[in-house]
Structure formats: structure tokens, C-alpha cells
């Protein structure tokens, strides 16, 4: 019985002769129906998961790229939400995308949006909880990022392109220029949001994400920007819903 399934998969891949014991007519039009449905299903899942990439490249370019990705990395699960995790890295290596350096980082932001959308529900850290701690206790504590939070820092204007294409910021004449930008993608409640980060905020959040204490994260923020105002930085991140809870030092 494995023989049939092996042969059918070979026929889906183009080798209709493998299926001859069960389908003598290698030109049977029905084979194309299955091939088309599968190709369409994969391309549609990727187009839905990477809408900004699809819009920037156009439908035909995207579909061709998606199908090539799917041939090399077919989905493994019927729950297709996680499919395409490797697509941004693959795009970065995809020869036809060589002249489109913004595609792979834009794909990472699309991916972050999808991950945030499906991430576990979790409370947002109440600023009042942090306000009652004395400074020494606060610096020794760790702030756990919200499970939906994804932190990015780019050397080029990726954030501007993506925020505008996804409607988080008004559409503008966009330039691909070498200008550092940060962005936080997070879903504090049921709506995915995206907020720009400055250099100090991004350094602070990445340190928190990697397990640093707030004191260590503050050092990172000052290293990134000596003029950083720690109080307003932390307040802005709390308001954005970046954290789910504080872990006091035990």
C-alpha cells in the first residue's frame, strides 16, 4: 500500500509514469487538478502570511517564489499557521531577490505579525505594579516580554516601509536608505500593534528578552544612547504592552 502512496506523490511531483499500475493514462487531466489544488493551497497560505512581501513584489513574482520555496520546503502540518517560518531566510538567499534587499527583513516583520496574532494570551504588566517597587528592587527584577512581543532593529529603512505598507503609518513616498530603525510588534490584547523603537528602547527590550535584569537592560540602553531617559523609556514600553510580568529577584 506504501507503493501506491509513493507512486501518487511521485506523480504529484511530475512523474506520472510511477502511477501507471493504477493509472495507465499518464496524461489524465485529473492529475493536474490535484497538482493545481496543492500548488494553489501552498501559494495562498504563504501569500496570506506574507502580505507585504506579496504586495511589494506583485502577485506573479510572489507566487513563483512561493512555489519554489514550497518545493524545497513543503509544509509538514495541516495546521498551516506556522508554515513559512523559514521563508524570510530563504528569500534572503533567493537569487531573483538579490536586487530587493528589503524583502527578507520585510518578510521577518510579516512573520512577526502572524506569530503575534496567534501567540498565547497573556496579561499586560500593570505600570502600577512597577511603580510601588523601590529603585533597587526594580533594578534587580526581570521584566518578562509579552509572549506576542517581537523586537527588531534594522540598519536600513525596513520599519518605515513595513509600517506604511501594513497601514500602521500613513503611506508616504518611501525611500530605501541606510537609516537605523527599530520596531516592536506586539499583541497586548486582541489586536496586533506595531510601534517604533529608538536605539535605547530596542537595546533595553532585547536585553530584557535575553533574560537581563532591568538594571542590566538600563546599562544596555545607556550604552546605545547616553542621553536615554530611562523613566520615559520604561513608561513608553509599558504603555505599548511590551511586558507581561515582573519577576522580583528571589
Amino acid at each position: 500500500m506504501a507503493d501506491f502512496h509513493d507512486a501518487f506523490e511521485a506523480a504529484l511531483g511530475g512523474d506520472a509514469a510511477a502511477l501507471k499500475p493504477w493509472l495507465p493514462d499518464t496524461e489524465a487531466p485529473g492529475l493536474k487538478v490535484y497538482r493545481n489544488t496543492i500548488a494553489r493551497g501552498r501559494a495562498e497560505v504563504l501569500a496570506a502570511a506574507f502580505p507585504t512581501v506579496a504586495r511589494l513584489t506583485g502577485e506573479d513574482w510572489f507566487r513563483a517564489a512561493a512555489l519554489e520555496f514550497a518545493r524545497a520546503h513543503p509544509p509538514g502540518e495541516p495546521a498551516m499557521d506556522r508554515y513559512g517560518a523559514g521563508f524570510p531566510d530563504w528569500l534572503a538567499q533567493f537569487p531573483p531577490a538579490r536586487d530587493l534587499p528589503y524583502l527578507a527583513p520585510v518578510a521577518r516583520l510579516d512573520r512577526a505579525f502572524s506569530e503575534a496574532h496567534a501567540a498565547p494570551d497573556a496579561p499586560v504588566l500593570d505600570p502600577a505594579g512597577a511603580a510601588v517597587m523601590d529603585t533597587a528592587a526594580l533594578y534587580a527584577a526581570r521584566a518578562e516580554l509579552h509572549p506576542s512581543a517581537r523586537v527588531f532593529w534594522f540598519d536600513w529603512t525596513v520599519a518605515s516601509i513595513w509600517l506604511s505598507e501594513r497601514g500602521f503609518e500613513p503611506a508616504d513616498t518611501l525611500a530605501w536608505t541606510q537609516q537605523a530603525e527599530g520596531v516592536l510588534v506586539v499583541r497586548p490584547q486582541m489586536t496586533v500593534t506595531a510601534v517604533r523603537l529608538d536605539r535605547a528602547q530596542a537595546a533595553f527590550l532585547r536585553a530584557c528578552r535575553d533574560g537581563a535584569t532591568l538594571g542590566q537592560a538600563a546599562t544596555k540602553a545607556f550604552t546605545a544612547d547616553l542621553a536615554a531617559d530611562l523613566r520615559s523609556l520604561f513608561t513608553a514600553l509599558l504603555r505599548a504592552g511590551a511586558f507581561t510580568r515582573l519577576h522580583a529577584q528571589s
Binding site: 501506491f4 506523490e9 490535484y34 493551497g41 501552498r42 509538514g76 498551516m80
Partner: peptide, 22 residues
Amino acid sequence: AWSKRRGTYHPDLLPFPRTRAM
């Protein structure tokens, strides 16, 4: 129908010969 085997998912509902073994 079948749609997944050996770790690959085909987003479709695929046919098979209706044998007693199947």
C-alpha cells in the same frame, strides 16, 4: 482521503485504491 504522510502535508484530499488492505 489522505493529505499527509512521512512528514509532508499536501493541502488537498487525495484518492487511493479501495482495497481490502486499505
